[in-house]
Design a protein around this nucleic acid. Structure first.
Lengths: 156, 156
DNA sequence: TCGAATATTTCGATGTATCGAATAATTCCG
DNA sequence: CGGAATTATTCGATACATCGAAATATTCGA
């Protein structure tokens, strides 16, 4: 037997997985449109979120060899998505920063999904929104935890 | 000025994006752990969901040339994740199916996230679950639509 | 029946991401 | 000051995914 609550939980899992699949396809489409590999997207994301970083830092974040990062930055620079500038304190170092236009172009790719989600959200009361927000936050935490478990397992 | 409802919508967008990012990282980790490229994962997913398919069908779904699919199936077969079998009705064709063990191993990678989500869901009333389920469903639809827009744009 | 069409594979070529090792420039420190 | 350490790049090598064209086997249709 199965209670109504259990049925709803099963349904929740199903819908979660479906959204998960759609999310991956969305990000894949964005990558293709920007002509970026998964690694390049990741590096660009780090720089966009953390500000200018050195090649060494990027190599550590992305798990690549120094030579690989140099080549990767070369590619992004050729596409005019990042720029190299000398580090003000240490002349051995280089700072890699994203071009403002790169960010703008990326944001515009999200325009539709943001607008559609906004519209969707208008159908929900404040109380309902709080419920959904709470769930999304916890789901993100659970997903993060699960990713950590997977990546640590691969180091055994 | 900004109403309470508007603030909540902004928060919803923020949490959605965070979950989105975590989801991509989770899938990336799974791909690395299974030693599969993004394309290989996609092909494996098609076969797992739609049942045995021919190389031609897979080539169309994945957007690859026939020769590329042959090589891709070779790789998956070498890893014992799929098997080729003759098509019963047309001896020119080949059917590519996933190994049962491949599915089992994949499911086990989801064990933790499923269990944690189940536990999380227990804190929610039936009414709240329905609210969240409804949102996830619509978010998936919105994401799907957005992906379609992106991919069609690239064909202009 | 027999030529055209279809499905798949093989082969060779190409582009590209990644890496280790060597190099150059700079900083750190004893 | 001067050698060791650090940072980034260059270079050459390697691995690999992808592709077009040719080859093979089979089916379809006039």
């Amino acid at each position: 037997m199965s209670t109504e609550h259990e049925k709803l939980v099963d349904e929740l899992l199903l819908k979660s997985r479906e959204l998960s699949t759609e999310t991956v396809m969305f990000h894949t489409a964005i990558g293709i449109l920007r002509d970026l590999s998964a690694v390049e997207s990741k590096v660009l994301d780090y720089v966009a979120r953390l500000g200018p970083l050195t090649p060494k830092e990027l190599a550590e974040y992305a798990g690549l060899a120094p030579a690989s990062i140099t080549a990767l930055i070369d590619r992004l620079e050729r596409k005019q998505m990042v720029t190299r500038s000398p580090h003000p304190d240490d002349r051995r170092k280089v700072l890699v920063g994203v071009e403002e236009e790169t960010i703008e172009r990326a944001v515009s790719l999200w325009d539709h999904i943001v607008a559609a989600t906004r519209e969707l959200a208008n159908d929900y009361s404040e109380s309902e929104l709080r419920t959904v927000i709470g769930f999304l936050e916890r789901a993100a935490a659970v997903t993060h935890e699960s990713t950590l478990r997977l990546t640590s397992r691969s180091l055994e």
